[in-house]
């Protein structure tokens, strides 16, 4: 103990304040991109701490893997979903927040108390630990490949599981080969020839309103009524076409939220 330099102390206090602010921002920011950026801040601060404590390798890994790879993946996903989209932040469970606050405070106080009372054994220090293997990376490698080789091996099982799981949950195999534009065209004319009611010229494009510019916005016919054909059939099926019904009030439960509650209380509603 006591070998913490002044510079490190200063870095710690500055970094920890930034880090905690970042963490709070992550939770309370309404825009999801802001939350992601706050998370980046937290992770960078952590990386600084690691480095300041002599765990350079860990610090670099923290930046490369978390701030670099994982956060970028997050942001990609956010871009794909749409930066605009955001979850409703209205709490629907009665008492949830009022209960959460005391629990969080209690947990925080307990932990502060715990650390205040924690009576830690003498630290060995990173330098001493590093000396064993002849360097930080070497020491880590030594531990990883000898002492903890089994955990290391078994984590491969976790990784394979994750990869397979991601495939299972997202990869959609086509049941039929994709039709080319030519084939679609030929088919359309064949059906028209049989007297079916198909649009030979293709369906109208989605509409462009002043407010919205998206595929769920129907085009308007000359008489001002929306053209149902201009919106993708899936969206029509899901009833998420704009303009067919009044715009939803902000904060109302989204479609499909009814599925989300299936606890005992939900069970009760269903069964009675």
């Amino acid at each position: 103990m006591g070998n913490t330099g002044h510079g490190e102390t200063f870095l710690f206090w500055v970094g920890s304040i930034i880090s905690i602010l970042g963490a709070l921002g992550l939770i309370f920011s309404k825009k999801i991109v802001h939350a992601a950026l706050c998370l980046c801040t937290v992770m960078l601060c952590l990386a600084f701490f690691y480095m300041a404590q002599g765990a350079v390798f860990l610090g670099v890994v923290q930046i490369v893997v978390y701030t670099g790879a994982v956060m970028m993946l997050f942001l990609f996903v956010l871009m794909l979903i749409g930066i605009e989209s955001q979850d409703s932040l209205v709490e629907t469970i009665r008492g949830q927040r009022w209960l959460a606050v005391p629990f969080v405070l209690a947990f925080g106080f307990v932990l502060i108390g715990v650390y205040a009372h924690a009576n830690l054994p003498e630290f060995v220090g990173t330098d001493a630990a590093n000396a064993k293997g002849g360097g930080n990376v070497q020491s880590l490698a030594l531990l990883l490949f000898s002492r903890y080789f089994w955990a290391f091996e078994v984590s491969s099982a976790v990784l394979i599981t994750s990869a397979t799981g991601a495939m299972v949950l997202t990869h959609r195999e086509r049941t039929v080969p994709r039709k080319s534009q030519r084939e679609i065209s030929i088919e359309r004319f064949e059906r028209w020839g049989k007297g079916e009611k198909v649009s030979l010229t293709g369906l109208p494009n989605p509409g462009v309103y002043a407010q919205h510019n998206a595929v769920d916005t129907p085009a308007l016919l000359p008489d001002g009524s929306p053209s149902e054909a201009s919106v993708n059939a899936t969206l029509r099926g899901r009833d998420t076409v704009r303009g067919f019904r009044p715009l939803p009030l902000p904060g109302a439960r989204r479609n499909g939220a009814a599925v989300a509650s299936r606890g005992d209380a939900g069970n009760e509603e269903v069964s009675q």
């Binding site: 002599g54 350079v56 990173t126 330098d127 590093n130 000396a131 064993k132 293997g133 002849g134 360097g135 930080n136 990376v137 070497q138 490698a141 030594l142 490949f145 000898s146 002492r147 080789f149």
Partner: peptide
């Protein structure tokens, strides 16, 4: 001693005994 530099006393890696 720099923490990044490999020290001269690099421990030799002994392959763990696997049962």
């Amino acid at each position: 001693m720099s923490i990044l530099a490999a020290s001269s006393t690099t421990a030799t890696f002994v392959a763990p005994h696997v049962e």
